[in-house]
Simulated scan of single mutants.
Amino acid sequence: MKINNYVNNIKLVKLKRTKLVLGFLSVFLLLGLFISPSAAKTDWKISPSNPTVGDTLKIKGTASPGEDLIAQVSFEKELPVTEGRYHYLLEKIKIPRGEDNLLTLKGEGVENLNVSVTKLFFTKKLSSDAPRGIATVSRRNVPPLTYKVLIDGDALSTPSKDSSVKLTVTASQTLKTSSKGKFNFNYHTSSMPAGKYTIYIGDSKKTIELKPGKNKWHF
């Protein structure tokens, strides 16, 4: 009987040690998940800090090595409505080279949204109805050229004489970080209207104000 009790005590001690080791391993695995390098935060800076139309915006930053980051730039514009219609012309919009780019135009307070994109002597027309007052037109993988973009359409009927339409223009593309987690991106602003821009890169957001240059082109 004493031998059996001794053997049972040994087995019980071994079982407790095994559970203790498994417990420590579980804790270490959880810690490894929380401090995984794949969860690195995106950090970036933009220069110059007070840009004007015509400057080259330079963005440099770091994230996880080999990561695909979505870089997105957007601006908003309140368009006046005249006799039930609205319009807005962007003379020279330059699409930079990049992977999987996307250009999106959204109109709020509209019956429809028409977008005419012209390059050289070719014009592409896109349209969207707005059953709930919001219309969106998107184009993916736009060739890296310079375009003239005319935006117009019918506004929602309203009794107010000072009605307006809200237009949001958003451009995005994919940036890939290096083996050291670094990335950079340059964009010449000569084709951009002056105003406030919201820039998202990965999980980070910044707002800049592009001031009018010599051409005094602003929106």
Rank of each mutant, 00 (worst) to 15 (best):
D68R: 11
T82Q: 09
G54E: 00
A71P: 10
Y86C: 00
P80R: 09
T56Y: 14
P48V: 06
K58Y: 09
L57T: 01
A63Y: 05
A39I: 13
S49N: 07
F34G: 10
D43V: 15
D43T: 10
T82W: 13
W44M: 01
L79M: 09
G66D: 04
G32N: 02
W44F: 15
P65V: 01
F34Q: 08
E76L: 08
G54Q: 07
L33C: 07
V81W: 08
L79W: 03
T82L: 12
D68K: 14
S64F: 11
G32T: 10
T82F: 13
V73Y: 09
P65Y: 05
F34C: 12
T42Y: 06
T82K: 15
T42Q: 07
D55H: 12
K45N: 04
L69I: 07
S49Y: 11
T62L: 11
L33F: 14
S49C: 08
T56N: 03
V73K: 02
G32W: 15
F75L: 14
E78A: 10
T82G: 03
A39S: 11
S74Q: 05
I46T: 02
L69R: 01
T42E: 01
E78S: 15
A71T: 10
I35P: 05
E78I: 10
A40Q: 04
E67L: 15
E76M: 13
L79S: 02
I70P: 08
I70W: 12
G61L: 11
S47V: 14
T52W: 06
V53M: 12
V81M: 02
R85Y: 01
S49A: 08
P48R: 04
D43A: 11
G66C: 06
T56C: 06
K77N: 03
K77D: 01
K58S: 05
D43R: 14
A71D: 02
S47W: 07
K58V: 10
A71H: 08
Y86V: 01
P48L: 08
G32K: 13
K77S: 02
Y86K: 00
K77P: 03
G84T: 03
I59E: 00
G61Y: 07
E67F: 04
T42W: 08
L69K: 00
K60D: 00
L69W: 09
V81R: 00
P48C: 13
G84H: 10
Y86P: 00
S47H: 06
